[in-house]
Amino acid sequence: MKKYFILLFSLSLFISCKDETLSQSELVTEYYDGFNSSDFKRIISVIADSITIIEGEYIMPYSQESFYEQFKWDSIFQSTYEIVELKTQNNQVIATVASSSKRYEFLKNNPLTCKFKISFNFDKIMKLESLECLNADWNIWQTERDSLVNWTIKNHPELDGFIHDLTMNGAINYLKAIELYEKRKDAL
């Protein structure tokens, strides 16, 4: 029995020594790779128990469970992420990321390249703050979004509200609205 205990202890010690702590840049890379591969397990392995996303005035705190809903919403648009640059500064990472999606394509801002300040807590990502979007044309974005929303309210009220519905169903309705709107434009 003593031999088995020693063997089990040695094996667990070997396995635990094999675990490597990822650098902050590697955590960020793994986070975006998780989105690109549609693998939420990869994302959850590098985020803290709660994560906060800050975009302008909007502060969105998520638990891992509620962040899964955000992940599903994003995946409907077939989003892809390419890390353009990573800089470490003051225990944070500044990441420049180019993202493409069906939504950005419709909003005529595809790809959308933004800088994020990413903060960590105990080797996990705990906050992503959008600093600036380098190539965004917010006027075109707003014009396209407002045209879609107003047209949808008039022509497909059953889809109304998709713009604020950050669930998977909301994203599905968003894509349906885009498809119907574009078919209408093609018919003109």
Rank of each mutant, 00 (worst) to 15 (best):
N90D: 15
P61I: 07
F35Q: 09
N36C: 04
Q142I: 11
K41F: 08
E65R: 05
Y62V: 01
A136M: 14
A48P: 01
I76A: 01
T96L: 14
K124P: 01
K41M: 09
I59L: 07
N121H: 13
K41E: 08
E69C: 07
T29F: 03
V97W: 14
K115E: 15
E30R: 14
N110P: 01
F71G: 05
S79D: 06
I51Q: 04
M126H: 08
Y32I: 04
A95V: 07
C114W: 03
K72N: 07
P111N: 08
N36H: 03
Y68E: 13
D49W: 07
F71E: 13
D33I: 07
L86M: 07
L86V: 11
Y32E: 01
A95L: 11
I76N: 05
I53N: 01
G56Y: 12
F71L: 08
K102L: 07
I76W: 02
Q92Y: 11
W138E: 13
W141R: 00
T52K: 06
Y62H: 04
T113V: 14
F40L: 06
D49R: 04
L131R: 14
A136C: 07
S37L: 12
S63W: 05
F106R: 02
R42A: 06
P111V: 05
Q142P: 03
S130K: 14
W73M: 03
Y32T: 00
W141T: 00
S45N: 15
N121L: 15
E65I: 11
Q78G: 12
I53W: 00
I53S: 02
S63L: 09
I53D: 00
N121C: 04
Y62I: 02
Y104R: 09
